[in-house]
């Protein structure tokens, strides 16, 4: 889906911001879309390399059926080149290099979710944009069967495919990898298309949560974080949950230390001060801000330790203590 044919069997992929021009026999930057005689094919369709059942908190989605399970699907490939990628053995490889490739056509995948009574299907681990056709077909089918659909993305896809997929989407988690082009250089990517995506998801009224992995020296400038929070407030509103996630050395950034917790706490303070209502700290199991607090009365609403929900005091989408309405998908 989403490509143009040029001259001499060359094609231009229209899926993500890169708009790769792909000559015959080659693949795009995502390693998943291959030009065969002037037609662009997805080589990972129906061939996931990771299929797991996770808690929805792991996505992370903190305002989406807390404590429920999601059926997660990932394949090989990604259109980014994040030097900190912790799923690089999936995302930075082509399908031929995968240790496991399952044969799971959309019907079977949906069947699995239904059989295991899992309410939500999720596309995560690697970049869903890179296996869009597979995501799209599953999402469409799953919606017909009453399942919910969420996905976790770097957000650098183009408006047309995004809008098409949002029709069959309930919630989206977007990695905002920083708030400067410099931070995005670390991913060999661009910031602008991601901001565009965030605005579109928000405008289409789909549930959105944002993850910002704070990496020392790459994107931990507090002024930059403040700017990001202000941008979120002005463009998406104060009710979009923002997760500051801790970085651990991985892939090509093993020389960096893990993010100091104090940095994450500073970021938390900044975001709250800017006025964002739902800010949390991730990848620090047991931290106070794994939990969700009521922005009005300040009481703890959802008590989490890492991915586990210990208590939930949201009733009918409202704070049980003060009645404040909490946005999200609660049932």
């Amino acid at each position: 889906m989403f490509y143009k044919v040029l001259v001499g069997n060359e094609v231009q992929c229209q899926m993500c911001f890169r708009k790769c021009i792909i000559p015959e026999g080659r693949r795009g930057a995502c390693r998943n879309r291959e030009n065969r005689k002037g037609k662009l094919y997805s080589v990972v369709y129906g061939r996931p390399s990771a299929v797991h059942i996770d808690p929805v908190e792991k996505e992370p989605q903190y305002h989406f059926l807390p404590g429920s399970e999601i059926l997660c699907i990932g394949t090989a490939g990604c259109n980014f080149r994040c030097r900190h990628c912790h799923n690089w053995h999936l995302s930075q490889r082509s399908i031929e290099e995968m240790a496991y490739v399952y044969d799971l056509m959309p019907e079977k995948a949906v069947e699995q979710a239904l059989k295991n009574k899992i309410p939500t299907m999720s596309f995560t681990y690697n970049e869903p944009t890179s296996f869009y056709e597979y995501v799209y077909d599953i999402a469409k089918l799953a919606k017909e069967k009453g399942l919910r659909i969420i996905w976790h993305s770097n957000g650098a896809l183009n408006p047309a495919p995004l809008k098409e997929l949002l029709k069959y989407t309930d919630g989206v988690t977007i990695d905002l990898k920083g708030f400067s082009q410099r931070a995005y250089d670390n991913s060999s990517a661009e910031l602008e298309p991601v901001l565009r995506t965030l605005k579109i998801i928000n405008k289409e009224g789909k549930w959105l949560e944002i993850v910002n992995l704070v990496i020392p020296t790459i994107n931990d400038d507090l002024e930059e974080i403040r700017k990001m929070c202000i941008w979120i407030k002005e463009n998406l509103g104060v009710d979009v949950p923002l997760h500051f996630s801790r970085f651990f050395p991985a892939y090509r950034l093993t020389q960096l230390p893990p993010t100091p917790i104090s940095t994450l706490e500073k970021a938390y303070e900044i975001a709250r001060k800017v006025g964002l209502n739902y800010v949390s700290i991730g990848n620090v199991p047991g931290h106070k801000y794994n939990s969700t607090f009521c922005p009005k009365c300040g009481k703890k609403l959802i008590h989490r330790t890492h991915f586990m929900v210990l208590s939930n005091d949201i009733e009918d989408g409202k704070c049980r203590f003060c009645g404040q309405e909490i946005p999200g998908i609660w049932k």
Partner: peptide, 24 residues
Amino acid sequence: LGDNETQCLMCPRKCLIPEGARGV
């Protein structure tokens, strides 16, 4: 970029070029 992949920074396409391939 590692794994013998390169990213050209000459034009706005910033092609990611794997081993043996060429930019746009």
